[in-house]
Design a binder for these strands. Structure first.
Lengths: 219, 219
DNA sequence: TGAGATGAAATTGCATACAATTAAGGCGGG
DNA sequence: CCCGCCTTAATTGTATGCAATTTCATCTCA
């Protein structure tokens, strides 16, 4: 009766390591020592290796035969590619969502968006960031296409380490919310092309914010 | 000096099993027994398990904890989703290619397309099929975006088992070539929106051909 | 006859052991 | 003082062994 939820150690390790990468505890370039990870989690190397292979396929880590694994460290050009890819995937999902979301999904998306207005006005960066992930995930789901949604989500995870502090750039919250408004209006009204354009615009601006932030950090 | 080409056993197994799936020797739903695969390739279960985990992340196989792995067997709805996703990814790549291909790449794409006309006219299904993969791969590459190209290629692999005989449908070769013509013209002329539309059109028709073929087989 | 229990066999998950490659440190020569 | 080689430690790749779960055939009983 209950859903069979028996993840293997390798599965749990994969999510644990991925979490470490996403929340910044494992920064890009960090070496992933098999015995270290094994001891740290109280398991043997076997499930660790399986987890690493899984993460390597997702692009979160890089494995070189006999040279070990590291958290993926992208060059600026590769980061740019990741952002472009994410923008395209999100825009595609937005377009499909505009075409195939159910009325209920459209209303919920609208409600979610409106709730975020308050967070943006209050300047609650933490809560807005969480809500933002949920907002974009709702659009992925609204595309009603599992493979595309999975790729979009995966790209979002991959760019995560490089956009950690994006919302701290001055005024990003309100601006993000305004851009969401255009996206939501297009999706709710069934304007496929408009949804695509608005989402590309939105994510591209996120990338700009990242670049501004990176420039500040480099200085 | 020589490039370091030392794939591990797990890597070689992953490609070997993937080949088996792609060329139809391992049909969807086929059980992937660890000891069987190990004996068959003369290795132990350890690298086999790592290869399976790698393939599971690519979507080519399904693994359920403690229940073993099978070649992914998609429902008709899931196959539909895969085709839609592939159409979107290819269209996105075509649009980016129209915007960012170099003059040399455009000329090569045109030349490749023209060479395929002869194959279509001659009815050489085998050669056309191979050239077709290369044609689409050239467009992925022309997008100048590694993540998108990788996803597009991966989707192409995943739908492979369900479209094996598409070109045998009567007249598909010539028609495919005509559709390619629209795609190539748009890309070469830098018409981004046109390239997107033409590619969606093309891949959607491929899906129609698949469905026609499936209907024939079901009868 | 068929549904459910029961046992053995098969299969997966994980740990340990060993082999092979790579990285690190010291040594001598220039 | 720096560069290269050699030795040794550290790390990865693979094999094997054992425990646990699943599967399947058989048996029992309604």
């Amino acid at each position: 009766m209950s859903t069979d939820t028996n993840p293997t150690l390798a599965d749990k390790l994969a999510t644990a390591i991925a979490d470490g990468i996403l929340n910044g505890r494992l920064p890009p370039g960090e070496r992933l020592d098999e015995v270290g990870l094994a001891e740290q989690h109280g398991v043997s190397r076997t499930p660790v290796r399986e987890a690493l292979r899984q993460l390597a396929m997702s692009g979160l880590i890089d494995m070189r035969p006999r040279k070990g694994a590291i958290v993926s460290k992208a060059t600026p050009e590769e980061i740019e590619s990741l952002f472009v890819a994410m923008a395209e995937m999100e825009a595609t999902c937005a377009r499909l969502a505009a075409m195939s979301m159910t009325p209920v999904e459209r209303r919920r998306l609208q409600a979610r968006h409106e709730a975020m207005m308050a967070l943006a006005a209050a300047g609650d960066t933490e809560a807005y960031s969480d809500a933002n992930v949920a907002f974009h995930s709702a659009i992925y789901a609204g595309a009603h296409n599992a493979p595309l949604a999975e790729y979009a989500m995966n790209l979002r995870r991959r760019v995560g380490p490089y956009r950690r502090a994006q919302f701290r750039v001055d005024g990003r919250l309100l601006r993000s919310n305004q851009e969401h408004d255009a996206v939501v209006r297009a999706i709710v009204s069934g304007d496929a092309a408009g949804a695509h354009a608005a989402m590309i615009h939105h994510v591209s601006l996120v990338e700009d914010a990242f670049e501004a932030f990176a420039a500040i950090n480099a200085a």
